[in-house]
Nucleic acid binder design. Sequence first.
DNA 1: TCCCTGTTGTTAGATGCTCTAACGAGAGCT
DNA 2: AGCTCTCGTTAGAGCATCTAACAACAGGGA
Lengths: 230, 230
Amino acid sequence: MAQTHDAPDGGIRGRFRAQVRSEVKQAALRQLAEGGPQALSINAIGKELGVSGPALYRYFASRDDLLTELVVDAYHDLATALAAATRRARRLSPPKRFRAFAGAYRDWANAEPHRYRLLFTAPLPGYDAQSDRLVTASREAMIVLLEVLTDLEPENSKRDVNPLDDQLDRWSRSRDLADIPPSLALRAIITWSRLHGLVSLEIEGNFASMGLDPELLFDAEVTAILSPQT
Amino acid sequence: MAQTHDAPDGGIRGRFRAQVRSEVKQAALRQLAEGGPQALSINAIGKELGVSGPALYRYFASRDDLLTELVVDAYHDLATALAAATRRARRLSPPKRFRAFAGAYRDWANAEPHRYRLLFTAPLPGYDAQSDRLVTASREAMIVLLEVLTDLEPENSKRDVNPLDDQLDRWSRSRDLADIPPSLALRAIITWSRLHGLVSLEIEGNFASMGLDPELLFDAEVTAILSPQT
DNA sequence: TCCCTGTTGTTAGATGCTCTAACGAGAGCT
DNA sequence: AGCTCTCGTTAGAGCATCTAACAACAGGGA
């Protein structure tokens, strides 16, 4: 066998392996935070860990492999943050719970903009977003959003059969999101898109350079989302 | 004088200079289209133009300088496309004119996703979005959007004095966008954000990996934008 | 307990990149 | 017609990813 790169076997060997992998990822995140994805250097990580460059290739197949790992972790962390915020607001009214969800989304992106960028931007060369690992990783976050939106409009079964319905239905089924009416799925995707639009512009500094307070803009948009026309 | 890097003086020298700069940028766009920003290599461009690597440093101060140039060009091209589409739809009703605007926005992003990414993502290391050149470059596109929205709701002077109004006012004044009511400015920014949200997710392949037709999602969002609740 | 084997880390090197420096050669401008 | 400025060249420093070959060591079965 040439190299494994994963699969800890529970033994002492595997434990050590997981530990090193974790330390590498932490160092990688530090480097990512200052200087973006292109500042992430295998050599520099090795130096930071007191080890020589090529040693890390025992743990990650390539630089891109390491980045992909970070993406998966980021998805998971984001989903965890969203679930925690939603859970904290579980006694509040559905609109306020949605505000909590949206706020947590924005807060997470602002706290770690480099990781947020990693999620929704494609810094990798032959990066394909339909990779199974990434699809699975993003599922958690979508589930939280769907829950919050379900509470928001319990029985909004507006039935304008458009061609999207079939696609939305197939999508929710393929993700094991049982029993999602197409209208809710559409609402979730549009909501996600709107939150992402504002947040992504904010973390790139577009609003700061306009002299606008991103939080106020965000509040305005969340209010708009909460009071749709139909 | 060490190096100039720009300022063609109209003479033969300057003409040649501009020509070479243009050819370099074209080659850069080709490389950008396949492999993203990190595939853009000064050396490779030189090879493509039948010239040795460091020669290009006579024309661009650095790789980042070249990228910034591409960003400015892209802003201008996008604004031109938006203005052209709007102008083509000038005899249609304001809602249809807005649809034309939004469609042109999406079409441009899909036609050249790498350039769109260049605009709203920060692939550069010490990249600052408040650079004067970029602010100026984005102004054109915003003007077109403001025009379309103005026709859409001629006298929607809803006056809920919120703290954003001051900021929005200062922003429009600082950009020489004379006489923009804050409510319109807010509407423009939110609209931009929504379009960007969908388009950016689309060009990263997020909808394709969901089995959803981006155009239908886009139509749904444009319809929602056209019929606000208030 | 001892040895085999797989894992780990090391250096050397191939290849590519950006960018600087020093040096010719030629064409524009006066 | 000659001065000068600009252009393109090579050489090289420095850093990157990643492969290859080699040394050392510790885990686990005999």
